[in-house]
Design a protein around this nucleic acid. Structure first.
Lengths: 190, 190
DNA sequence: ATTTATATTGAACAATAGTTCAAGAGTTAT
DNA sequence: ATAACTCTTGAACTATTGTTCAATATAAAT
């Protein structure tokens, strides 16, 4: 059998533990090789596969490396759980945050957006730079509180609606403070 | 004013673009310094702040670096959007995936878990190693299809329930193929 | 068996990494 | 003013990086 998948997993472990890629010497020990050149050979192959690339003589992981395999649709049936050979690879940080620096997180409490499937203790990623469009979910400052609402605009008038019939739509009179547009929602079960 | 925040943002930009930290020489150019030692000084301060650390003479970002600021609860009201000084910092990759290598993604289609706020086109993170507990959401292979269901166990009998009244609970007769336990749910709006 | 391609060893190279020392600006406080 | 502290310059050092060349072992193919 090829030692490659196991070796790559060792690199991944190293990366997630140390937040950097191992050097060739470190990989040498990791893989049990007697020469750094054996490592160079293995890395060369990984580069050809697109798992890594070289940037200014420095080894850099590509998204295929730190991403999670996206195996397909839940209905379509997915291939054997053979780690490798996923249809696609998705890095969550990349997937969720297009432009870090303008994004931040907020923990949801309350049921104003329950109809959208956004519940208490969910995390929302907000983009404070983005201009809200009709139908976007925004964080709005209302009555000394931040809440999530749908942002609706008609005839120049702004209406904030909850995704919960028990809350009435709000039409802000004067100033409307927005904390950002909801870019994604994250729920963790453990 | 201190040039620090701007400089740090340049490092972040570099990191997200190139997937690695800049070298001292690269930072030197980035910041407009005439000496690498000026960089070393700035980095030294960042290390003291806990944004980076040194690992085997290599500069490594800490979670504070690539994480998103978690500003607080949506109801509690949150501080001014002053980037820095968040109560906490959360790296989504770290937050969502405890142990990569056993995790993978699946795109949801169908409404079997609509009551849980899990909808079509959401992404679920599955842990295929985890043992399902009572009430967990699992990916189960039923009738030649993968679907999400609640995993319930009573008196040694396993029942798979949808979070949607229009689907009846299933009691698998013989083999039950599970694809993993849902660890988190991710929805992206853009 | 012999060729061909793939893997691994071993040793050495030049380039570059982060580090260090000494000195000078710039700022702030006393 | 002057002292103390922070920040920046300049140049040089050592260790380590990824790389390279040549040789050999292992496996696959003809």
């Amino acid at each position: 059998m090829d030692a490659t998948p196991s070796a790559l997993n060792k690199v991944k472990e190293f990366y997630f533990k140390r937040k950097r890629l191992p050097t060739y010497r470190e990989m040498q020990k990791l893989f049990g090789f007697a020469s750094t050149n054996a490592v160079a050979y293995a890395v060369y192959k990984w580069i050809k596969e697109g798992i890594f690339k070289m940037d200014e003589n420095k080894l850099v992981p590509s998204s295929q490396f730190f991403g999670l395999p996206l195996l397909g649709s839940i209905k379509a049936g997915f291939p054997t759980s053979d780690d490798q050979y996923a249809s696609e690879t998705v890095s969550l940080d990349e997937y969720l945050v297009g432009n870090p620096g303008f994004a931040y997180l907020l923990r949801v409490s309350g049921d104003s957006m329950i109809g959208e499937g956004i519940r208490t203790d969910d995390l929302v990623v907000l983009d404070k730079r983005r201009e809200p469009k009709n139908g976007d979910i925004v964080a709005a400052y209302i009555d000394n509180e931040w809440t999530l609402k749908y942002f609706k605009k008609a005839d120049g008038k702004i209406v904030l609606e909850a995704a919960n019939p028990k809350y009435k739509p709000l039409m802000p009179k004067e100033s409307l403070t927005l904390g950002g547009v909801v870019v994604s929602v994250i729920r963790k079960y453990y």
